[in-house]
């Protein structure tokens, strides 16, 4: 325990920061969830990256 007493303002600020942190963590979890959902739906995992990708050309398989 700290030897100085927290000002009430710091207590409130900490609470707010915890909420913001929680929001960020849930956003990360949500993006991960979206990725898993899209991949399990069989969505394309590759995209154009300036080199020839035969799998991206229609009818090449």
């Amino acid at each position: 325990m700290a030897i100085t007493k927290d000002h009430e303002l710091h207590v409130r600020r900490r609470k707010r920061n915890l909420w913001v942190g929680l929001m960020l963590v849930s956003f990360v979890a949500l993006v991960f969830g979206i990725t898993v959902a899209k991949m399990s739906d069989g969505e394309m995992m590759e995209a154009f990256d300036h080199s020839l990708r035969p799998s991206l050309v229609e009818g090449s398989e």
């Binding site: 949500l30 969830g33 979206i34 898993v36 959902a37 899209k38 399990s40 739906d41």
Partner: peptide, 11 residues
């Protein structure tokens, strides 16, 4: 629509 995608879209 995949339930996760539906949830995220509505959010």
């Amino acid at each position: 629509v995949h339930p996760v995608l539906a949830f995220a879209s509505i959010l």
